[in-house]
Structure formats: C-alpha cells, structure tokens
C-alpha cells in the first residue's frame, strides 16, 4: 500500500504529468487534487497509526483539519496561486495527501450524525460552486479561460446530482447500516 502511494506520489510530481494536469482547469481540480488526496488515503492504508489514537481520539481534530484544507482548495484563489506561486504549489503537494491521510483516519471515528452533516453540507457547497462557475459572467480564475470555468461548474453539478441520488437511495431503500454515509 505504502509503496504504491509513494510511487503514485512521484508520478504526480513528475514535471510532465504535473504540467499536463495543471494546464486544464477541470483536470487540475477534479483529477490532480483528488489523486493527491488518494495518495494520502493509500498512505494511511489499514494501519492503526498508534499516536493518532491519542491525538485524534474521536476524529474531530483530524476531520476539522481535513475539511479546512478541502475548503481552502475550493477557493478560486488557491488554484490560481498554485500556478503562479511556488510556495502554494508546494503546499498543495503537502496538504492534500495530509488531507487524505487524516480523512481516512478520522472518518471511522467521528459520530454518525456528523458524517451525515458533512455529506449534506458538501451537497450545498458543491451546488453553490456549480452555480457560481456556471452562471457568472466574470472570470474567476485568471489563469484559465472562461469556458473552462463552465466545464468545472458542470462537473460540480453532476457530482451534486449523483450524490443526491445516492443519498435518496440510502435513506429510502437501503437504510443506514452504520458507516454507510
């Protein structure tokens, strides 16, 4: 697992893939960022990580940090700055694997209702971003074209729609066996 994660990480760091993914907004946002998160998840694997039992006992600390990082990367500013400022670019490659790692560690620990709350919260946040990127006439990211912005909006919208369907399936058909949502 860990080896795979490191390999993956190096692959993403390689100048070719990095520049390739960053040249298109939708790939930057919906491929590079999630893959970096995935690196963190793989890195965590199924291990216990003893010290986190103490420092992240109920998962709240880890989740707060993870959500904080996630929201940071949803600010249009961050995406732009990652292209122009090397410091932010480095931070991206550090913070996102950390996010994945903490997420994996915390998700099982937090109370069920907060999982539901987070899930529902992201529905409305992604919906808002879809609305913003799809509808606004002004350019939000300086380094990308306006029509790229709209593709990003469309992807956000589709994520929201799929998530809503999944949620309806859970609450109406399958029910919530613990950990389901």
């Amino acid at each position: 697992m860990m080896k795979l994660a490191i390999l993956f990480y190096i692959l993403l760091l390689a100048p070719g893939t990095r520049e390739g993914l960053e040249s298109v907004m939708v790939l930057h946002m919906f491929l590079q960022l999630p893959l970096l998160i995935l690196v963190g998840i793989l890195l965590h694997g199924n291990r216990d990580w003893r010290f986190l039992e103490k420092w992240n006992e109920n998962g709240v600390a880890g989740m707060l940090l993870a959500v904080g990082v996630l929201i940071f990367w949803m600010l249009p500013r961050s995406l732009d700055d990652a292209l122009t400022e090397i410091g932010i670019e480095v931070w991206k490659f550090v913070s996102l694997p950390l996010l994945g790692f903490l997420w994996r560690n915390s998700w099982r620990k937090i109370v069920g209702i907060f999982k539901s709350f987070l899930y529902i919260n992201f529905l409305s946040m992604f919906g808002l971003l879809a609305w913003l990127y799809l509808g606004t006439p002004v350019q939000i990211c300086n380094n990308y074209l306006i029509n790229e912005q709209q593709i990003v909006g469309a992807v956000y919208l589709s994520i929201v729609l799929v998530s809503i369907l999944y949620l309806l399936y859970l609450v109406f058909v399958r029910g919530l066996e613990e950990e389901a949502i």
Binding site: I113, S116, F117, I120, V171, F172, V173, R174, G175, L176
Partner: peptide, 19 residues
C-alpha cells in the same frame, strides 16, 4: 439541520428507512 438529521437518522435506525 443537525436536529433534523438526527431525527431522520433515529427514525431510520428504528424503522429501517425513511420509506
């Protein structure tokens, strides 16, 4: 929102689903 999520979850737990 927290209150109604809790309501929904409690009902699902007891009854199986919102349906």
């Amino acid at each position: 929102l927290l209150l109604f999520i809790d309501t929904g979850r409690a009902i699902i737990k007891k009854k199986g689903s919102l349906a």
